Amino acid sequence: MSLDTVVEEIREDARERADEIRQEGEERADDIVSAAESEADDIREEAEAEVEREIEREREQALSSAKLDAKHERMSARRDALESVREEVENRIAGLDGDEREELTRALLDDALDSFDEDEQLAVHYASGDEELLSDILDDYTHVSLAGEYDCLGGVVVESESSRVRVKNTFDSVLDDVWEDDLKQISNRLFDEQ
């Protein structure tokens, strides 16, 4: 074997070894690229899923906020409607006159008088404009006298001159009681919620 043959064999072995190393390197590079692409796909999928979750959270928050705003608007509209109904009722009550006003005033007075002893001297306050009406009604009572105006829609406020007891039996107080007791029913009726 000649030196040239040995050199040629060494070169051939080196080429084969270089080809093997190059092929192993390319395979490793392909594996690395494949792994990187797979990891990139996983990262992208996770990022897309996170973006979807964030979009869903923001959508739910926006929807919840919109529902809350709508509820506040409905409640405000209801409150305004109930206030309007209350004002209309007060106007109608204030506008009562004639026999109807006398009948209601007399009933409120009789009810208030039940809270006192029969022989107590009592003073009756009345709504502005009701002095003549109360004067006529009080002609039927011996121990009751007019005491002056009281800021109300109608009815009476009866006081004992000796015991400092006061019974407020006005149209306003009756309306307040009815309104408070039946507000839910009134609201349900106005807004068709049964």
Rank of each mutant, 00 (worst) to 15 (best):
R53V: 11
F116P: 01
S65W: 06
L113R: 03
S115L: 05
A123Q: 10
A112F: 00
A66W: 08
R79W: 04
M75Y: 11
V89W: 05
E118V: 03
R53P: 01
D117Q: 09
E120H: 04
S128F: 06
L104D: 07
H143Q: 15
E87Y: 10
Y126V: 10
L68G: 13
I55Q: 05
L104P: 01
L104W: 09
L109G: 08
M75V: 12
H72N: 11
E87H: 13
D80K: 14
A112Y: 01
D111C: 00
R78N: 04
L63Y: 08
L68V: 14
E103L: 08
G129L: 05
D69Q: 13
A123S: 10
E73D: 11
A94E: 13
D136L: 00
R59D: 06
S145L: 13
V89Q: 03
E54I: 12
E73L: 01
E52A: 14
D69E: 15
E88L: 14
D130S: 05
E103H: 03
E90D: 04
D80T: 05
I93F: 15
D110E: 15
L108M: 06
V51D: 10
I93N: 01
L133F: 08
H125Y: 09
D114R: 13
E90I: 03
D117L: 13
E56P: 00
R106I: 12
E54T: 06
D111L: 07
M75E: 14
T142I: 13
E118L: 08
M75I: 02
T142P: 14
E73Y: 09
R92L: 10
A77D: 10
A147D: 13
R53L: 13
E90M: 15
S76Q: 04
E58G: 02
D139S: 11
D97M: 05
E83G: 06
K71C: 02
S64D: 11
E60V: 10
E100H: 08
D99G: 09
R101H: 01
S84K: 09
E90Y: 04
E102D: 00
L96G: 03
V51M: 09
E132M: 08
D110K: 05
H72E: 14
M75H: 05
S64Q: 14
E83P: 04
K71D: 07
N91E: 15
T105F: 03
I55G: 03
E50W: 08
A66M: 05
H72C: 02
D97Q: 15
S65I: 00
L96W: 06
D111T: 12
R86S: 03
G98S: 12
Q121C: 04
R106G: 00
L82Q: 04
A94F: 09
D136W: 02
L113G: 00
A127R: 02
E54K: 04
E131R: 00
N91Y: 04
S65V: 01
I55N: 07
E60M: 02
D99P: 11
E132S: 15
S135L: 08
L146C: 01
D97V: 07
Y141V: 15
Q121A: 15
E120N: 09
V85N: 00
E73C: 05
V51K: 11
E73M: 01
Q121N: 05
G129P: 07
E131K: 01
A81N: 07
E83I: 09
